[in-house]
Design a protein around this nucleic acid. Structure first.
Lengths: 209, 209
DNA sequence: TTTTACATACAATCATGTTTGTATATAATA
DNA sequence: TATTATATACAAACATGATTGTATGTAAAA
């Protein structure tokens, strides 16, 4: 065995990340060893340790690949100034997320790992705190959209957009947890899109008249 | 060291469960060894293995102590026939749960472990499925309360109680996750009770008129 | 020629499950 | 009631992997 070209090295790096994700999803982060990851990526531990100092670095690499696109989507949704229907924007943001989870196995796995197959202690505690910060940002963006909706008369003017944003965020947090954890039993995933639409519908002013 | 009386044995058994919870909360379930638990309970691994075959049995014992009282509370709330205000029943059920978390450190720890310090793979996957079943039951009970509320004219008659129940459950699921995970940063826990009340308020018919 | 991108080998620790030992509580019996 | 037998509630020792991090080797890319 010999030295690879830079492009090849990048490929093996990516193979290792993919392997890590797949093994994490199967055995959980804690019970996954570097050897598991290496053999699943068809390399030796030497290769893994060459690219990543330890398991956490690998975890971060995996997380970023799934999370960064999601964050960009949120920003895009908020910045869409010419939208006539902010409530629909929120709805579509959620629906798109669920659709991504449905279509993209790697994103699905990463969410599964982060929500049910990872223990947030010691170094991983930081990951949780970073997630909470993202939640804050997400809530603020949602609030902006609700304020737009209020200006456009889409919602009851007596209700504080901040409250709506919080309520919606907690709802969607619950949705994601349900969706991800219901991987064997049937039922939840099929109705998720409908639940999101109903949630938004509950806010629309026309609904209450 | 010698044989203890039955009462003493039961005490050490309980001490081991408590120790397990505390170590789980500190190090996460996976990184907790039987030796950690034993020494923290001031016994040897021999004692731990005498009372529990392995870590999962210990985990189950810990979980049951926190979960069974909660399930009983739900049933009590639904069965309260003479209540004039079903919406208030839902609100109080949630508020009481949060209050318990605030007051009882052991319940708090158990929730923390189950939501952020445990990997649901292999044998632990069953735990997750059992949790989902409890969710189903909880949703059904909530729906019953919303149907009562509908009969009493507390909510908009055009809205399906099943939808409301689902939406509320997902909201509260999000609330619990937020509450439990926000253990360092301030902010979320203080406003939780208010968020719950706002959530219920959004449903009240008087609110939409 | 010097890095790079790995593979291989090594050392040390850690955790688990089991086994064995033992003092005593608790019946059973006389 | 006193004695005996047995099951109980552990402690201590053992044997056996499993993982980790590092150190070293190496062939080809740069």
């Amino acid at each position: 065995m010999a030295r690879k070209t830079k492009e090849d090295a990048e490929l093996t790096r990516q193979r290792i990340i993919t392997a890590a994700r797949e093994v994490f999803a199967k055995r959980g982060v804690s019970h996954t060893t570097m050897e598991h990851i290496a053999s699943h990526a068809q390399v030796t531990r030497g290769a893994v340790y060459w690219h990543f100092a330890n398991k956490i670095e690998l975890f971060h690499a995996m997380r970023d690949q799934a999370m960064l696109p999601f964050i960009e989507r949120i920003n895009a949704a908020v910045l869409d100034e010419q939208s006539e229907d902010p409530l629909l924007m929120i709805e579509q943001l959620f629906c798109n997320t669920i659709q991504t989870l449905n279509e993209d196995a790697s994103t699905r796995q990463t969410y599964e790992i982060m929500m049910a197959k990872c223990e947030y202690v010691d170094e991983f505690n930081n990951v949780l705190q970073e997630l909470l910060i993202n939640c804050r940002i997400f809530i603020e963006k949602t609030q902006l959209l609700y304020e737009k909706a209020k200006q456009k008369g889409q919602i009851n003017p007596n209700i504080d957009p901040a409250v709506l944003a919080m309520d919606t965020h907690l709802f969607f947090s619950g949705v994601l947890h349900m969706w991800v954890k219901d991987n064997t039993n049937l039922g939840y995933r099929e109705q998720t899109i409908d639940l999101i639409k109903q949630h938004i519908k509950l806010r629309r002013k026309s609904q209450t008249e």
